[in-house]
């Protein structure tokens, strides 16, 4: 293999190794249960953000109802395990299958239209799914939710405490990150970047733009479904509230903060937004009397608008320079 081309991949390979070491040692110094559980939520959010970042940054499309895919995974897992006593892993796989199929069908229709109908269609999907979760009480338990979701186990090993669950969630994220980096650095990633640069030129070399947008949409929906399953098996309970429109918006904020130019931004976007939420929840009442969780969304809104105006590539790549390769290459 050509040495120069190995160096192109090197930053990602070393990045993945360093990131794995960082993830592995974090529970050793994070002793607080509260922080550890926050880290688990960040991991779940990072999985969602990763998919959304691929969709927004690489396919140039936006999903405003990503919470719907998240909910589909969560509820498929919850319903199948609680009501039908399925194995959690099988339920998770079926969740992926169902969610992926739904995303495929939607994308199949939407990407035939030029323009930004995906934003509207996913927005509608988000509302429909959210309403349906409250409406079909027999299956979903309605607004009060569905308790009694079992723990995840492998053989005799049970993910029954936060440390174990932390490693599970972040291992899944790490694998998906590696998978995404591989996709991005393959013919498919190049085709996507080509579409982003010029759809006409991409088509002129044989790239079927709508087909690749569709694949990324399905991939991101699959990630969201996995995140949903991991979420319910951690909470052991599911209700519609975490899957409302605000949840979809929060995911877009995470992706935007993390940056759309690189999948590496996903964990940072997720961590930044979740830590900020925690911080605001604890500090906002000092500044504004009666401040509630809803007030914190103003801050998201401001962040979102400011980032999109001043750093449309996202915070991470706006701060780090947008060089993709290490700087030993000369640039004329």
């Amino acid at each position: 293999m050509n040495i120069g081309r190995f160096w192109h991949r090197a930053p990602n390979v070393f990045g993945l190794i360093l990131f794995a070491i960082f993830l592995a040692i974090t529970p050793l110094w994070v002793q607080s249960n509260y922080l550890l559980s926050t880290a688990i939520f960040i991991g779940i959010a990072a999985i969602l953000t990763l998919g959304l970042a691929l969709l927004m940054g690489y396919a140039g499309q936006i999903s405003l109802g990503h919470a719907a895919f998240y909910a589909m995974g969560a509820y498929t897992s919850a319903i199948l395990t609680v009501k039908f006593a399925y194995s959690p892993w099988l339920a998770m796989a079926l969740g992926v299958l169902i969610t992926g199929t739904l995303a495929y069908l939607i994308g199949k229709v939407i990407f035939r239209l030029s323009g930004h109908y995906l934003a509207l269609a996913t927005l509608a999907l988000g509302v429909i799914v959210f309403l349906a979760l409250g409406e079909f009480r027999g299956l979903t338990g309605g607004p009060s939710g569905l308790p009694g979701v079992p723990q995840l186990t492998i053989g005799g090993f049970s993910f029954d405490n936060d440390v174990k669950y932390y490693y599970l969630v972040w291992a899944v994220f790490w694998l998906l990150l590696a998978f995404s980096l591989n996709v991005v650095n393959s013919r498919i990633g190049r085709a996507l970047r080509a579409i982003h640069a010029s759809e006409i030129a991409a088509e002129s070399v044989g790239v079927d733009a709508s087909r690749f947008k569709l694949r990324v949409l399905v991939l991101s929906a699959v990630y969201a479904s996995l995140a949903g399953s991991l979420y319910v098996h951690y909470m052991r309970f599911v209700s519609p509230q975490p899957f409302d429109f605000n949840a979809s918006v929060r995911l877009v904020v995470m992706a935007a903060v993390g940056g759309l130019a690189s999948v590496w931004g996903a964990p940072f976007g997720a961590a930044a937004v979740i830590l900020l939420t925690v911080l605001l929840r604890d500090t906002l009442p000092f500044f504004i009397k009666n401040a509630s969780g809803e007030h914190t969304v103003i801050v998201y809104g401001v962040i979102l608008v400011l980032i999109m105006i001043f750093m449309p590539e996202g915070l991470t790549s706006g701060l780090l320079k947008r060089r993709r390769w290490p700087s030993f290459r000369s640039k004329k």
């Binding site: 996709v183 013919r187 044989g206």
Partner: peptide, 11 residues
């Protein structure tokens, strides 16, 4: 990217 039509690996 130009080689796209001559390659087939899936996602």
């Amino acid at each position: 990217v130009g080689c796209h039509p001559r390659s087939h690996t899936g996602i």
